[in-house]
Nucleic acid binder design. Structure first.
Lengths: 345, 345
DNA sequence: ACACCCCGTGTAATCGATTCCAGCACCGAG
DNA sequence: CTCGGTGCTGGAATCGATTACACGGGGTGT
């Protein structure tokens, strides 16, 4: 592969001049510039990003460590992160932690070794020494979705509190009284907060959240299935199951179906995180939707600001309730019978 | 951040010795080794992967360019690729082309600039000069899922021909005669092959595939919706719609629902690529399942073989039909009523 | 005793870029 | 004619690693 020296030789100039042309440095003669560009063209030269990074101490790369690629919420997040980063002149390297702290550490270490300019993390746990040290050592960092308390790192996330209140109001309005939740890992903020918000909202209706109605999941489908089976086995099973993420809702659906029971007749179901498929499940699932794309973009903006020495602040966006039919009678009098408003020529 | 010189100074040896210790070079005294390791520990030293790559001309990194991260098929592929690569000592950088040739080129260029050791591609189109040149220039490369004919690059993919025949047999068995397909872009192999396989299977039953029954999609949900609307508007609409990927099936479902029609009563639906949600859609969707994880792993093995100078061959694995209820009467006499075989204590 | 070898180590070159600094040519002003 | 810019250019240092080569010291074989 051609190097800058080859280009220099081809153009009859020094490597320094080639570099200046490529970096739009003003003091290059028009003549030299055209000769260099011609040489670049004929050799098909492309600058070696590795060498450039070593010299400039900048990789123009962001690391993104997410908890689970197979979760549509995170892939949507990853997509918007990459999009915004690209618009700002950065590339993104994604690390998938699969909800495993050891894998998370592996990726953080790998990204740090590659000298990425900044790190976007949705932590799987309370934070390993590695990550905390990096933050303290001044690695530009931003937390997305989940965060670690007590660390001086901006947090970009959605606040689901109001939406959870709306959900509980909706459930109460349908007459449900025994409400259970499939929680995420207590080591994650979203794992704790969603339970807290749920309990708080129930409290506002004078309802308690008994321990038996708090199932411990791990944000994976299998745990949703397992927890739901446990809930159904209770002497007094809940009337509603609220899954703290979409994969656990999938698992819950598996469990309910395996018993030959029906949603919402036998048990109601709601989920945190909305995904496109929820419109077409049987029944369509009521969910709390996060502004995922906006979160990803805001996180990148905050991180790039930090990298470039600007402040880079925390952002909290509201989530909202999307009512469908999985908790009981439909929001509208009848399921849609007529075509959608758009014209069909 | 500490460099190898700092470690050398701390340990009272030269940088060469530090390097030898870190790379398990045999000729280092036990004494020097312990002093170096101690220095590494106290300084929290981590080798700079950028510098190392520049010197050794190896990044231990694979590039993976996929057509669409939001497609569960590709995220599953990406996950298995990363897993196998990690097991073999490589990292993976993912580029998402979003089915756009220009974006695909952007990522290929970016990955090449970073001097990745090898490239895994699921091409969005017939191949830009950039990619073809790279292949010819000897960049280790492997195609996954989709490929480009006439290029000397191993291909790892699933063969859906038999499964499509099974599907058509299933549809014929249910009495369907007017079968339509929502095709992928003609520029992709999977876009063409799935139509060909479908037409061939129909032929075996003496059925034709009229042009009007071949809708042109682009593997995205929106195109599935649009094409389905067109099919439904036909004077003689098809009895079955076969979507060439899962996202277009989602779009088809959107379109059918917007008309207040029902699957499979008013129209049957089947899809290429199986995903977990298809079990829970209304109705559960009959699909052709690829051995996605195995494809990803095989692709990595082939690529790493090429990188390390070994042959690295093409692999073709069979896909299989998974019958559910979206094409008509259920495979079993009744939908499951009893609990799943696993015991519930 | 001498030649030889092996072990452990350091010096220095190298990878491909960027950038400081010095120098050369040419210009206009005094 | 000289002086001081100004504009362009190349030489060389540098980033942080790896590795070929040389060297000193100690052991071994004859």
């Amino acid at each position: 592969m051609a190097s800058i020296k080859d280009v220099a030789a081809e153009a009859g100039v020094s490597a320094a001049t080639v570099s200046r042309v490529l970096n739009d440095h003003p003091s290059v003669s028009a003549d030299a510039r055209t000769r260099v560009l011609a040489a670049v063209e004929t050799l098909g030269y492309r600058p070696n990003a590795v060498a450039r990074s070593l010299r400039t101490d900048q990789t123009h790369t962001l690391g993104l460590v997410i908890s689970d690629v197979l979760n549509p919420y995170f892939t949507e997040l990853a997509r918007s992160v990459e999009e915004e980063a690209r618009a700002l002149g950065y590339s993104v390297i994604i690390g998938n932690a699969d909800e495993r702290p050891d894998l998370q550490d592996h990726h953080v270490r790998n990204l740090l070794d590659r000298r990425i300019d900044g790190l976007l993390v949705s932590p799987t746990d309370g934070g390993s020494p590695l990550m905390l040290d990096a933050a303290r050592a001044g690695t530009p960092m931003v937390f997305v979705d989940r965060w670690i308390p007590g660390v001086d790192v901006p947090v970009v996330r959605a606040d689901g509190r109001a939406a959870v209140r709306d959900l509980v109001a909706h459930l109460r309005g349908l007459g449900h009284r025994r409400l259970a939740i499939i929680a995420g890992p207590a080591a994650t903020t979203t794992g704790r907060e969603r339970v807290d918000a749920f309990r708080e909202a129930l409290g506002a209706y004078g309802l308690a959240l008994p321990d038996a109605y708090v199932g411990q999941g791990d944000f994976q489908a299998e745990s949703g299935r397992r927890v739901t089976e446990g809930l159904l086995d209770l002497p007094e099973p809940p009337e509603v199951v609220f899954a703290a993420d979409n994969l656990m809702a999938l698992g819950a659906l598996d469990a309910v179906r395996a018993r030959g029971m029906r949603v919402p007749d036998d048990i109601a179901l709601a989920a945190f995180d909305d995904i496109r498929w929820f419109v077409h499940t049987d029944p369509p699932i009521t969910a709390i939707a996060q502004p995922t794309g906006e979160l990803g973009r805001a996180a990148v903006r905050a991180l790039v600001a930090r990298i470039e020495g600007r402040p880079g602040e925390s952002v909290t966006l509201p989530a909202r309730l999307v009512v469908r039919r999985s908790c009981g009678e439909p929001p509208s009098p009848l399921p849609p019978l007529s075509p959608a408003p758009r014209s069909t020529p």
